Structures are given as structure tokens and as C-alpha cells.
Simulated assay, not measured.
Amino acid sequence: MEEEFIFLKPATLRPANVGDDVHAELLGHSPVSRFISHEFLASQIERPTPVFDRFEQASADLLAFRSRLARAAVNRGVLAAGVGAPFQTEGWPEVTDVERYHTVETEFRGLVPDHLINGLHVHVGIPNRDAGVQALNRVRVWLPTLLALAVNSPFWRGTDTGFSSWRSVHMRRWSTIGCPPVFTDAADYDRRIRQLVGVGGTYDLCTVWWNARLAEDHPTVEIRVCDAQLDAPPALLLAALTRAVVTTALRDGEADVAPIDIAPELLDAGLWHAAREGMESTLLNPVSGTLESASAVTHALLRYAADAIDEVGNRERILGLLARVRRLGTGAERQRAAMRNGGRPALAALLTQALTAHD
């Protein structure tokens, strides 16, 4: 898992450029912060986790790191937030002083001020790139469903956008984004992504930013559709569901089970729809190709991945975490409720308390 966090000033909820300081404090000082890294902006930090094969490992690790991160933020008079986008912004953000990030700034120009976005990326191991491509061909149709569960960015520049994942709307303006196309095999995938390099700001293979892709540095499928999460439980839910969906897709690819056939324009519209509605209304069911209730589409995903969920003993955990989402709401719903009930101070309190929440 890769979690991106942003540091905010408590009174204004504007970005605070303390990423370098926190990185220097946390890097390598304990097993849970061994892999901490810089992110694009000086107000951000990214934390790739170790590889997990059990839910309990992931839970303990995420909570331990978030506790350390919260303390580091408090020591600097700021708060660390797991949000897809900050409540408030101002001017041109400070880019982290790394050559790669300055290249992104040069290539993407006027998009940079709106790139104050944070995601949760989940990697699932694959035996080889051919198997990974076959998994991508089958996972792509479930990306809108995963996004709906992950929505956590309703505000932009102090205003409710009417979308539950405004981060997703920002991402649509980059040159390679959305659900990946269908590929024949790994050779087809590799040929086509190499053709993208040099076109539209895609200056290397790592800037092919589809919501699902093959990782170039690891033997994994990487699912990148999710907003960063307020607290650890929904991040664990999304990781467990992603693992199950990718595992099922790998098996279907090996057994030559045909991918769900859905028109690319319908899938893309379904992704936009999920960014707006979250879990509060309807979603595109890729099986039927029609809009259905969010709960019905979630159950369709659970049916698709049922065997993979059950064999690792995650069914009760997943059902319990889904019930928690129904009870508390998605991150977007919780942020909106905080604003309604107490304005900016209540939202700041939610962001602070949620970072280390575990139930």
C-alpha cells in the first residue's frame, strides 16, 4: 500500500510546507517509517508500506505509522490529513526540490496549482507481466466501484464541489488517466505505453497514470483509483477488496474466462458518476451495464471476488468494514457532516482525530 498525506495549518486548513522536515525526522527511525518518501509538493509525504500477506499485519502497521505521523505533525504545529484534496489552497504550491518533480512542474504547467491531491495506491503481486495484463483487463470494470467506496475529497478552495471525489476530477485533466484500455498481452501493453513517452507530458513510464497499471519497479498490479483515506479502517477495506478482485482476475485470466464486456465510454462515464455520487446514490454495475443502487453494485463486486475473499478469511472483516462505511459514511460524507455541524474547526478536529482512529 502507498498512502499519501498532506500537512495543513489547523486554523485555515491550507497546506503547510513541512514535508521535508517530517521526512527527515521519520525516515528509517523505526520499521514502520523505513520506506517513507517525498511527494510532489512540499506539503505532502508518501509512505509505502512493507509487503503484507495478512490483514492483521496491515492493520498494525498502518496504525503504528499514522500515530508517528500525527506526533510529528503536532510537533510542528500542523495536522497531517488523509484526504484526497485539502479544504483550502492558495497560489502556486511549493514543489519538492527533487529533479523529477521539477520535470513534472515543467511538463504539466498550469495544472500544478490544482495538483494538491493525495491517493491510496494498492499493489497486488503477480507471477509475470502477461498474467498482470490479463488481470488488468478484468479489474478495470470494477474501478468505479472501488472509487465510490474511497471518495474523500468533497471540498476545493473552501467550497463544496458537489462531487465526492474532486481529486478524481483533477486527475481527469492529465494526459494518461482513467480506466486503462484492454490489451492483448504484455508485449502489447509494453509497446503501447512506450509510445506514450514524450507525448502530452508523459516523460517516462512512471508518468503513465492510469487508475490501474502494471508497476514498472515491482512485480505487481497497481490500483490507483482511491482517494487517500481519513483513517486506517477504510484503507484496510479498500486494500482487502483490491487484493480479492485482483486475485480473482488473475485466476480468470489463467482459466481464460472472458472479461466483462463493457463499452469504454460507458465505463469512463461510470467512473465520473462514482466520483460525483460516492455511495450515496447509484453506481454503474459493470455486469448489467446499468445504474443500480450503490449497495447492489457493492454486492456484485463481493460476489465476483467471493472465493478470493473467503480463502484468506476476510469475509467477516470486509462485511464489518462495509457496515462501518454505512454507519459513519464515506470520507466525503464525514467531511461534509463535520462542516455542517461545526464549520472549519469541526473539520480540522475530524481530520486530526481520524488519522489515528482504529474502530
Results as ranks from 00 to 15, higher is better:
residue 283 L to S: 10
residue 187 A to V: 14
residue 113 P to T: 04
residue 91 G to Y: 04
residue 28 G to R: 12
residue 240 A to S: 13
residue 109 R to Q: 10
residue 297 V to C: 10
residue 350 L to T: 03
residue 356 T to C: 03
residue 307 D to M: 08
residue 156 W to D: 14
residue 154 P to M: 11
residue 199 V to R: 12
residue 39 E to K: 07
residue 184 T to M: 09
residue 345 P to T: 08
residue 350 L to D: 05
residue 250 L to N: 06
residue 107 E to G: 01
residue 331 G to S: 10
residue 275 A to Q: 13
residue 126 I to Y: 07
residue 86 P to W: 02
residue 106 T to W: 12
residue 169 V to N: 09
residue 346 A to T: 01
residue 98 V to C: 13
residue 116 L to P: 00
residue 21 D to F: 13
residue 12 T to G: 03
residue 341 N to E: 15
residue 270 G to T: 02
residue 23 H to V: 00
residue 33 S to R: 00
residue 329 G to K: 01
residue 134 Q to D: 07
residue 244 A to C: 03
residue 182 V to N: 02
residue 216 E to K: 07
residue 204 D to Y: 06
residue 112 V to P: 02
residue 171 M to C: 11
residue 129 R to C: 07
residue 48 P to L: 11
residue 302 L to P: 10
residue 298 T to D: 08
residue 188 D to W: 10
residue 163 F to S: 08
residue 354 A to E: 15
residue 5 F to R: 00
residue 80 A to Q: 08
residue 322 L to D: 13
residue 184 T to Q: 11
residue 150 A to E: 01
residue 143 L to Y: 00
residue 206 C to Y: 10
residue 116 L to E: 09
residue 177 I to H: 05
residue 207 T to A: 05
residue 189 Y to P: 00
residue 227 D to E: 13
residue 80 A to K: 03
residue 56 E to S: 14
residue 90 E to C: 01
residue 126 I to P: 01
residue 114 D to W: 13
residue 65 F to Q: 00
residue 220 T to P: 05
residue 179 C to Q: 15
residue 105 E to Y: 01
residue 69 L to I: 08
residue 294 A to L: 06
residue 166 W to E: 01
residue 321 L to F: 04
residue 121 H to C: 11
residue 14 R to D: 12
residue 197 V to Y: 11
residue 240 A to F: 05
residue 96 T to D: 08
residue 359 D to Q: 13
residue 158 G to H: 12
residue 238 L to D: 00
residue 276 R to I: 13
residue 56 E to H: 14
